[in-house]
Nucleic acid binder design. Structure first.
Lengths: 149, 149
DNA sequence: TCAAATCAATTCAATGTTAAACTAAATTGG
DNA sequence: CCAATTTAGTTTAACATTGAATTGATTTGA
């Protein structure tokens, strides 16, 4: 997807890298997340289940930070997971503003089932690159992402 | 954002790279697109204007492919741009199923104004990496993105 | 102490997004 | 030629997403 912009070489390179980064991330994510449709899970719902699976119960605020969504959105995502009995809400006794989200047994069973498949798909995608290339990509992404422009 | 998954080293590396790629692309895109709010443009709307700016008039089908959205979505995006008189629809005489989208004078003026700023922002983001690093990132993204898993 | 500020979650309005069903036009191949 | 298929765009239903306003709870500092 080359850019057609007639600018300085520096600008053209920057635009080209940006577009390639965006396209690659989009293509990879869409391939990796395609199997979630088998479980009628959205990417956000899966992100919540995965975070709870690995980190234990979390407040909605923490979940919002984990999956990079607004707190308003998290309310809806949790609502939909609660409807399917995959998570439950428990008001924090110490700080009654906050609500902890817990995986139910059904939620635990579901993510237990999905996660190994998810890992296999991610591995298959990423193993197109050699281990050294993967490390280099991770390094470049870290450098780019941490930037605050 | 390290993963907490206790899997094989190969799996852990793959998950780590995938997450970093996703986060970096998201962070960079959100910083780059932030200025679009100044013009009340969404990313999709900007994508359409930019494609028309550089490639000339295009059919809705082509625009959908360019910005990686469904044709149903393009109908809405174009509707909203038409409302603001930034583009016009012109039925193709040869193939009456198709509609060509053209930039209006106002649309041309707007993208003329925005695009140089956009390029400057992309340059500033990407120049955190050296030219060699940018080329390497582009290469790795191409390799990853072209994969069909 | 207590008023002001901050914070977690919810609600609402506006918009985006997709998939699927649909319309109308063009193409294909028997 | 014409029936079947394909194609471009629209519509609809369902849901996602955000930002702003709101509610209720906690913290802060004068």
């Amino acid at each position: 997807m080359p850019t057609h912009y007639q600018g300085s070489p520096v600008a053209k390179r920057a635009l080209d890298v940006y577009i390639k980064l965006d396209r690659a991330a989009g293509a990879v994510s869409s391939r990796i997340n395609a199997h979630l449709a088998d479980y009628s899970l959205t990417v956000s719902q899966f992100g919540v289940l995965e975070a709870l699976y690995h980190l234990g119960h979390l407040r909605q605020k923490d979940l919002a930070q984990k999956i990079l969504k607004s707190t308003g959105n998290i309310t809806l995502v949790i609502d939909n997971l609660v409807k399917r009995n995959l998570v439950t809400r428990k008001r924090d006794k110490r700080d009654r503003r906050a609500i902890y989200i817990h995986l139910t047994e059904a939620g635990k069973a579901l993510i237990d089932n999905i996660f190994p498949k998810h890992v296999a798909i991610v591995e298959a995608e990423m193993n197109v690159l050699s281990p050294a290339e993967q490390d280099e990509l991770a390094r470049l992404c870290r450098k780019l992402g941490l930037q605050q422009a």
